[in-house]
């Protein structure tokens, strides 16, 4: 007999092998399984499969594992328990250290994004609209771009010293290229038929720029700003860690040198939370500025 008889239908999920789920899902999509006996999932199983509940469950398991590991390692300086970290975090919040340093880092980030946008967007429009400008400026951009912002830190330290200017300089540098390249791409990719259509309606040059090119390019520019934020967020910690007397990157390294591990971990948590909410805020800004471009997502 053919081997068909040996091949089993994929039954209910079998977590035994890595591959089963792919095909399981594949089959699920083709036809919905009723489950054994076609029983309806109970209230409890349904509640357990809600996204929020899954997330909380995952966190609980993660923290439990961390705790067990901390107990097992039993070296609080290297790996403090979640409880100690939570206590440290509470203390830092109460002392105002969290809000102070987070505020400093976030305002540095905000200021540098604004500066980078002010510099990069007009230049991007110029380079996107005029070939001659692009031909002349692009080589410099392409020469500088591979040099990461981090690599500027020693030279910048020498020029600006440890202080507020250094992180700003690094962040503006990092954010600049992301915004510039996306602005150029956005301007380039404006549908030529839209411009032609506006022109045939007798719209003037400036009006075409204002009412056609800018709105059409804006979604891509916004993507550039979000990419710039992501790059700047990665760079700010490095910049503050090495060359600033304040901010989240400074704080985390400060407590590392003092070997106050719970506070180091507490600031790590803060960095994660601040980064998460900053991205959320930028997404909201993106939706508000370019409501017509839903789905222009980052890859």
């Amino acid at each position: 007999m053919s081997s068909a008889a040996e091949r089993q239908h994929a039954g209910p999920p079998q977590p035994s092998s890595l591959q089963t789920p792919v095909l399981q899902r594949e089959l699920d999509a083709t036809h919905t399984w009723q489950g054994p006996g076609g029983a309806k999932p109970s209230q409890i199983t349904r509640w357990m499969s809600k996204r929020g509940v899954i997330a909380i469950r995952s966190f609980v398991i993660f923290i439990a594992l961390w705790w067990l590991l901390a107990l097992w390692v039993n070296r609080p300086v290297q790996l403090p328990s979640p409880l100690r970290v939570a206590i440290a975090l509470g203390g830092l919040i109460a002392a105002g250290e969290v809000s102070e340093n987070a505020l400093i880092s976030v305002s540095r980030l905000g200021i540098s994004l604004v500066i980078a946008a002010v510099l990069a967007i007009p230049l991007g429009f110029l380079m996107g609209l005029r070939r001659e400008a692009e031909a002349i400026i692009d080589p410099v951009v392409e020469l500088l771009r591979p040099i990461s912002g981090i690599a500027w830190i020693p030279l910048a330290l020498f020029i600006f010293g440890v202080g507020d200017i250094l992180p700003l300089f690094i962040l503006v540098y990092v954010a600049f290229f992301q915004i510039l390249l996306n602005t150029i791409a956005g301007v380039r990719n404006v549908d030529q038929r839209l411009i032609a259509a506006a022109r045939t309606m007798g719209v003037g040059r400036w009006a075409v720029l204002r009412y056609v090119i800018i709105p059409a390019a804006l979604p891509t520019v916004m993507v550039g700003i979000r990419l710039a934020f992501a790059a700047a967020w990665a760079a700010i910690i490095a910049a503050e860690l090495i060359g600033a007397p304040s901010g989240l990157g400074f704080a985390i390294e400060w407590y590392r040198e003092l070997l106050m591990s719970p506070k180091v971990f507490a600031f790590l948590v803060v960095i994660g939370i601040v980064g998460y909410f900053a991205d959320l805020a930028l997404r909201a800004l993106q939706r508000w500025l370019t409501p017509w471009a839903q789905g222009t997502e980052l890859a």
């Binding site: 068909a4 091949r7 089993q8 239908h9 083709t30 036809h31």
Partner: peptide, 28 residues
Amino acid sequence: NMVAGLAEPSSGTIEKDGVPITGPGADR
């Protein structure tokens, strides 16, 4: 799809050469 074995009937049977189809196979 059901004959191919990519989908399972909710009720009823499909037989090939008198043998019920239980999944995809190179014979179909």
